[in-house]
């Protein structure tokens, strides 16, 4: 099982990076489509898909 963990580790780390990038962006962006706290939940609980959905539909940028 430890080798499984070693192989999964990069996935977990990259996924974590994606989530952090999304969260930092969420804090910095002036406006989102819908309330920010909702997007925070989507990003944290929604795994990869949550972050993707945030980047595509959450950001409000002209």
């Amino acid at each position: 099982m430890s080798s499984l963990l070693m192989m999964l580790l990069p996935i977990i780390i990259i996924q974590f990076i994606l989530m952090i990038v999304a969260l930092i962006d969420l804090v910095k962006i002036p406006q989102t489509n819908g309330p920010k706290w909702l997007w925070a939940i989507v990003i944290v609980c929604g795994n990869i898909i949550g972050s993707i959905i945030y980047f595509i539909f959450g950001r409000k940028q002209v």
């Binding site: 099982m1 499984l4 192989m7 999964l8 990069p10 996935i11 990259i14 996924q15 990076i17 994606l18 990038v21 999304a22 962006d25 990869i48 972050s51 993707i52 980047f55 950001r59 940028q61």
Partner: peptide, 28 residues
């Protein structure tokens, strides 16, 4: 500045890695 250059490659890499790892450890 709108981070497309960051998040899109990350997502592609994630899905690229996930497939082989999942298959390999499917049995486990």
């Amino acid at each position: 500045r709108n981070l497309k250059i960051l998040w899109i490659p990350i997502v592609f890499v994630l899905y690229g890695i996930m497939q082989p790892v999942m298959f390999y450890y499917m049995e486990d």
